[in-house]
Design a protein around this nucleic acid. Structure first.
Lengths: 181, 181
DNA sequence: GTCTATATTGTGATAGAC
DNA sequence: GTCTATCACAATATAGAC
């Protein structure tokens, strides 16, 4: 069974994704995690530390993802676009959660995202030997994350304005090849 | 002189951009606008209506921008990438403000942004006669806005990870030409 | 480790004077 | 149209029992 700490972070993500940052109060998170507020506070003595916990989780998941990106058989560019779509993976959820946290005034959230973005760009530039192409592809990935942050969870509802289906992904990957080639 | 209503909306934007959604309380906005809370409430009887006012402002500015985009001499694709960079224009400020509002649980904010995005995609697809290229370029613009939302105002500080300078813009526009051509 | 109070502050909103 | 109170409530955090 997952540790209470992890279950609380899961609940925090869940509320952030489905109801937004404003609704992610200690009460709401504790309730969703199935513990009392006091129980939550035992694991995360302050709300800042709860946010810090989610940032740490995201950073760890990002390191694993960067490794997969570097080692990808189809190349980092294609891997990056493929994985930038919102598919509800643990990484996706943590990323969107931290992105939403930013608005709460948590400075660490911006710094965490910025560090991850820097890493992606570096991997792309190294693999492609073309800074301009790397920038362009990085922007496309950011665009996909933009859609995720403004569409994931409850807010998603009626499908986005960007390609998320398999056909659209193939078309997008062809554009990537065109930029790279 | 700008109407009190406009000055309050300006102040609302300013606080949203520099301190985040959480800090954009009625007190903070009133103080920044140079009026009392009661004075603010006279113009915007509730916080939802204040948010509504900013969404309306953004929608109006977006309509003007869409017109310029359609009429652009260099074509909508280049215009779109050029204007998606954060340059602190009234449109940029309203857009980032509304984007930050979203996290506050204001449903109208998401809907407003989604409508604008749909419009952009439509203009691009119509002009390029190539849905895949339109999608890709739209994503690059979203990426630039992503950077803006996570970098504008006080949070900007140390320069982003994406091209914002003139050299980088030129490189980006070359990639756009490559996608379109 | 988890719980039930409770204290404290901040926030949105109302009422009514000027 | 703008102001000064003031209210009601929600949110973080503390204290201490079990």
């Amino acid at each position: 069974m997952a540790s209470a700490r992890d279950r609380i972070l899961d609940a925090f993500e869940e509320v952030l994704l489905t109801e937004g940052e404003r609704a992610a109060t200690l009460d709401a998170v504790a309730s969703r995690a199935g513990v009392s507020k006091g129980g939550l506070i035992y694991h995360f003595p302050s709300k800042d530390l709860l946010a810090h916990g989610l940032c740490e989780r995201l950073t760890a998941l990002a390191a694993e993802d960067a490794e997969r990106m570097r080692a990808s058989s189809e190349g980092p560019a294609r891997y990056y676009i493929r994985s930038s779509r919102y598919l509800g993976t643990p990484f996706d959820r943590a990323f969107v959660g931290v992105a939403r946290l930013h608005q709460g005034g948590v400075a660490e959230a911006v710094e965490t995202i910025r560090t991850i973005e820097r890493q992606w760009l570096e991997i792309l530039a190294t693999a492609l030997h073309d800074d301009d192409a790397a920038h362009a592809i990085k922007l496309m990935g950011d665009g996909l994350y933009f859609q995720a942050v403004y569409g994931a969870g409850e807010f998603a509802a009626t499908g986005g304005t960007t390609p998320q289906g398999d056909d659209d992904l193939d078309a997008l990957l062809r554009v990537v090849d065109k930029i790279v080639g």
